[in-house]
Design a protein around this nucleic acid. Structure first.
Lengths: 153, 153
DNA sequence: GGTGAATAGTTCAACAGTTTAACTAAATTG
DNA sequence: CAATTTAGTTAAACTGTTGAACTATTCACC
């Protein structure tokens, strides 16, 4: 590939990823009603799938500072979506789990989002999606490596 | 595709897009230094490429409320990156352009980001990228249509 | 031509999410 | 046991966001 082709690809990619992300987030938001922000939904999703987890774990996954997690979890416990439980063995650790209300709200939201994503994904044929997801996974890995390079510097 | 396959694809896609976006934004952030937030960089980028634009235009492109744009532009004019000019014919309209400082900061940042993206993109072969971007463009279109459907309801 | 509606943009209050630094409390290590 | 590390919180400061109320201007049309 010559320099100019790469240049154009890069600009196209930056515009696209920005655009696609905005649109996707807005569509997800439209499925969540006013009860949940997108970020809160992602937190709910993570804890739901993990069963239980800690602030430190969330901070690593979401790649934000721990105090940002504290703030989000505070809002969500205030709304009765999340429960904090101290570890009896290591009393520094706090486990986060979903309350029944939290689970219910997650499932309701998730159903809508699944319908949304399904209506989008079925507009592509299987080979196309498989190829796309494969490259996307590789991209995730490359970005992860890049991050670690950055950190070493 | 059977229901379960779709289900898995959806979950995989949601996780991936979330992850990739986070990592990409963090890498971009690391290239911007402390002078610019990611959102401000996107605004700079848009105005740079457009030459000049209005708040309304930005609000549409970025899919946010106009008052969010006002706030961002305020911060950026305070830092001497953007200039506001009233249209002489239609005095309701305000044109936004980059100051020399704004252009310089954008170019400096953009150079770093280009290097970053290039070091990532060159880890894929051309056919793979072309295919990926093609599907990504289709996705952008499908999401746009979906948004318009939502709005009609 | 004058009035009512539409348009461009700002202001304000309220909130979500973020970082950094300082802190508490508990565990680890040497 | 003292020093260090680890988990998490708190507080101040900031960015970005919305929604509603507002100003100023232009447009539509009778």
């Amino acid at each position: 590939m010559d320099v100019q082709t790469i240049q154009k690809l890069i600009d196209r990619y930056i515009s696209l990823s920005f655009q696609v992300h905005k649109k996707a987030e807005n569509l997800i938001k439209s499925q969540l009603g006013n009860e949940l922000t997108n970020d809160q939904h992602y937190v709910l999703r993570y804890i739901y799938q993990a069963g239980e987890c800690t602030s430190t774990e969330l901070a690593e996954v979401f790649e934000v500072n721990k105090s940002a997690i504290t703030a989000i979890i505070n809002r969500m416990t205030d709304r009765g979506l999340i429960k904090r439980t101290r570890d009896e063995n290591d009393r520094r650790v706090v486990y986060l789990t979903l309350t029944e209300e939290g689970k219910g709200l997650y499932q309701k939201a998730q159903e809508n989002i699944h319908q949304l994503v399904e209506s989008i994904i079925t507009q592509f044929d299987e080979a196309e999606i498989t190829q796309f997801i494969h490259t996307y996974e590789k991209l995730a890995q490359v970005l992860e490596n890049k991050k670690n390079e950055e950190l070493e510097e």
